[in-house]
Amino acid sequence: MSLIERWMSRFSLEQLKMTLWRTAYGNKDTFLSRLDPRVLLIWYVFFTVSPWFFYDRTVLVALFAVSLTLALTSRVSGLILFLMGVSTFMNLVYIGVLALFLGGSGDAFLALITLTLKLLIMGLASVAVFTSIDPEKLSDALLALRLPAPFSFGISYGYRMIPILVEQYQDVFASYRMRGCPPARKGILSWRIGYYFCKICVLAFYPTLLNTAKRVRTTVEALEMRGFTYTLVSGDARRLKLSRMSIRPIDGIFCGLSILYVAAAVWAGHQLAL
């Protein structure tokens, strides 16, 4: 079996569906999920933006340690962390080698480590936060932070519709397969098989678009009857959602500790540098 054929045999929408279900609907009981979603979001923004203003590696390592801990204690899958690590490392190597080739020295590596750390802090923190936060809570928090209502609705709608949409695509895809005819000759590296599959992937969107259009019409009619357009203007739903959220001591403690930690890291960085 050639490489392409092996891929094709692994091309399973069923698998995709399961991954989705596990990440999207799995248990969200982690430390971060206990915080108020708005506080968490704001904390997150500072935590991922701030590394870009530090060039001191001590501080960056300290921040990295926090985001790694958070990622490990949240329910991020090991595979995702592993892939993230590998791809970051490989990028580092490639750029470094290319820089050497273009007449640079080993300094390039060192310079890049700073960048890599920043990217990793951001990546890990994002994964930790967004796998902990329930999409429904995220959408409420974004609404509270004045993101337009269609976006916050969109998140929870995606959350609701995705199993249906994937199943529909799967059925259409299977329709093409059951009625189609794979190429008789495989070609070099089985490229013809690869081409056949890619073509179905693309063509299957034609019926999918039309079917989804029909579906969406019913959905938007339902939205109309259930007052969604009314609330877009009146903002009632937002007010009610806001009144349900509350900032508790744990949120304050968490933010306070974060600030102290960063301050300590900056101080330590100075001490070490001196």
């Binding site: 990440t23 991922t48 951001m122 990546g123 994002s126 994964v127 967004f130 998140i155 959350y159 995705i162």
Partner: peptide, 10 residues
């Protein structure tokens, strides 16, 4: 987001 691979601000 739903795949658990959301880069946030990135």
């Amino acid at each position: 987001l739903l795949m658990g691979d959301f880069g946030g601000i990135g």
